[in-house]
Nucleic acid binder design. Sequence first.
DNA 1: GGTTAAGTGTTGTAAAATTACATATATTTT
DNA 2: AAAATATATGTAATTTTACAACACTTAACC
Lengths: 285, 285
Amino acid sequence: MNVLEKIVNNVTNFSKSERKVADVILANPQVSIHSSIATLAKMANVSEPTVNRFCRRLDTKGFPDFKLHLAQSLANGTPYVNRHVEEDDGPEAYTAKIFESTMAALDTARQRVDINTINRAVDVLTQAKKISFFGLGASASVAHDAQNKFFRFNVPVVCFDDIVMQRMSAINSTEGDVVVCISHTGRTKNLCDIATIARENDATVIGITSYDSPLAKECTLVLSLDVPEDTDMYMPMASRVAQLVLIDILATGFTLRRGSKFRENLKKVKDSLRGSRFDRKDFNN
Amino acid sequence: MNVLEKIVNNVTNFSKSERKVADVILANPQVSIHSSIATLAKMANVSEPTVNRFCRRLDTKGFPDFKLHLAQSLANGTPYVNRHVEEDDGPEAYTAKIFESTMAALDTARQRVDINTINRAVDVLTQAKKISFFGLGASASVAHDAQNKFFRFNVPVVCFDDIVMQRMSAINSTEGDVVVCISHTGRTKNLCDIATIARENDATVIGITSYDSPLAKECTLVLSLDVPEDTDMYMPMASRVAQLVLIDILATGFTLRRGSKFRENLKKVKDSLRGSRFDRKDFNN
DNA sequence: GGTTAAGTGTTGTAAAATTACATATATTTT
DNA sequence: AAAATATATGTAATTTTACAACACTTAACC
């Protein structure tokens, strides 16, 4: 939790004078980080040691350390303390909030993701005879995206968003095949079935899902993100972005494993698009 | 540009002693921000004023101000100075780099996006008789995702990733229909055609694409992101994440316009999933 | 080889932060 | 309700820190 949030959360625990300090800082955080303890004390109409004590209460070593933490909280502009979108937010507010909460979600995802599992997943993927990506609902588009990345690698890739096709595909899988099941909650019954079926047919199942979910139990390898879905109650947002980044990471790991010759191949794939595009020269005329 | 990058870029302009300082800071940035000017000077084997001059060369007011800037650069952990994935990066390195570059891309997207256009786009979308999302290649999955969001709003939504279907759909569009064309480069000929056709049939065309691209010229409204695609040359990564966030923003704007009663509706959509899921109780047994 | 300029270090001082202590205010106990 | 205790806040002194001014060193150039 960053200092700014900490101040807001602790506002009730503060004493009268400390609260004055909190108010001043929250009102002009950008000014605060460039002020000395003396000027800040004056602004809040308290003594200097009070400011100092305030800093310590927030688990910082002292005023300079506090300013450091505050500066970090403000690193990306002045963030909304409350990132939840609210009824009366204007376009500016909700735009900023969604960007911020998505970035925050990616940040926690980065901290929580298990590098070791990623590495093993890349291992498995590079050795796969066939790779299948399955997702339902919002996760279906993530699966599509994954397909779009991995087909470039000249590996057989399939991607279905239709349960029946998924089932048939899963039943047909064999040893050496890799099935990637994508689900934020990990509670979608149909997808859990797919994982079970695939495993029964000796495929390796990678789950991009929540740790400790029913789906996770069915997987050989679980890449859990556990992003707090905090922007909107009714639509998956940040979770799905994190999933996509994870796909990017797996794809990158894949290309790195394959070495530099392989990258030539990617270039060819990209170049193949040329005919379908306006190139820059055409356009500048 | 953040201070850390600035140091790296200016490393040639530094004097011998200043370079020593730069090296020490780059080697242990986290330590640096918690050190006094004296200890840092000792670490670098230079005098205190040299450290001070070093700070000023980087356009900071002095050492404390420099530390503030440095702290902000390090706000999200110790970032890789070079975010480009390299041949010999291990899983840890490329994972961190991709997360970081994605977050950086979102940050620039946030700064560059035009709130006013977003607001107008939301306007148009809320009044649409029908909304169509079209994208090709990597942008197709973004279009799918958009469909997944907007269909919840009880508005007719279509989404095709097939050029022929797209064309037919575009030709059938009429006044009051909104067509959203998604393309990072904005140079995909087929998609430009779609935009043209839709406009000819009096539909409103929103482009999620690069400013100043051929596609942009064909659109009624252009939501440009202009994210530097810096992670990988051969695959779209950050750009597509930014597009998704933009979709989230439009969807959120949409729900806010519709007011609180409308949100009940969203809840119903979400609740409808319940039957297809393991609920938490089932699972805990 | 001397002159100039840029770079670097030493000393001293002003400012800033923190400690220790004193006073005021609230809280509990009798 | 008054005394006792604990908590909160401020004052003054101390210590730490950053910076300016000056002196010295090194490199560059004529």
